[in-house]
């Protein structure tokens, strides 16, 4: 494939090698990955396989050997993050959404994510699901090209989760999202590309599967969903 024909990637990793200090075998050996530019994608795999480590490497937070290039800023967020406790949610969000455009976006997101009624509370007073949503909102107000969401909606109920994913797709069509989740149905239905991370012994360690990329106007049929789910499970 010529350089010009190659699809534009949000993040590219080539020839990645990574081992935990003191570990005998490498976690990743000669691994390459291209996260497509734009769209809602998934990083999927069993617990403990190294998804979070790979996500941190993709975000440039963990040092590794290999080549990494990105198209614009990459942010990484995870589900156990907390906000400073001395501010209310509203105060904190307004502080981190300084630009006028972000302020407008904030009002929309507060409404769509269903947190507009808890803006006067402190972070510690929210439910885990509310905490997940508040945390995600503040990242969405930042300047990013790619947002890696490491189980960022883990404690959010299914209906709200779907509404949030659809909102992300509508509001940020030209940005890339890499969503880490253990819900195979969800990633099969909503993600455009599912990057399946497998054990280090398997070759290749990464398999890319086409997801159904459902949006509000384009629901997916049960048959296609089941086929994609089976494909993911078999590939794992």
């Amino acid at each position: 494939m010529d350089e010009g024909e190659r699809p534009r990637a949000a993040i590219t990793i080539d020839n990645l090698h990574f081992s935990y200090p003191g570990a005998g075998r490498p976690l990743f050996a000669n691994l390459s990955l291209h996260l497509p530019a734009g769209g809602f994608h998934a990083l999927f795999g069993p617990s403990g396989i190294g998804k979070s480590t790979l996500a941190r490497i993709l975000a440039g937070l963990t040092a590794c050997s290999g080549r990494r290039s990105t198209a614009g800023p990459v942010l990484y967020t995870y589900n156990t993050e907390r906000l400073p406790g001395w501010l209310t949610i509203g105060e904190h969000l307004r502080q981190v959404a300084a630009a006028p455009a972000a302020t407008t976006t904030l009002a929309t997101l507060e409404d769509r994510f269903g947190i507009d009624h808890c803006l006067n509370r402190r972070f510690g007073q929210l439910s885990l699901g509310q905490q997940n949503r508040v945390n995600l909102i503040r990242y969405l107000l930042q300047d990013f090209q790619t947002l890696i969401m490491d189980e960022s909606l883990a404690n959010v109920d299914e209906g709200t989760r779907e509404r949030i994913i659809i909102t992300l797709k509508e509001h940020y069509p030209d940005r890339s999202f890499l969503y880490i989740s253990h819900n195979v149905l969800e990633v099969a239905r909503f993600c455009r590309q599912i990057i399946l991370l497998r054990e280090a012994a398997k070759e290749p360690q990464i398999v890319a599967i086409e997801g159904l990329d459902a949006t509000a106007g384009h629901p997916v049929s049960q048959t296609r969903l089941e086929r994609t789910v089976l494909e993911i499970l078999h590939a794992g």
Partner: peptide, 12 residues
């Protein structure tokens, strides 16, 4: 880490 991560990531 779980509080500072956001501020470090966003340059604040």
């Amino acid at each position: 880490a779980d509080i500072e991560h956001f501020f470090i990531s966003t340059g604040r």
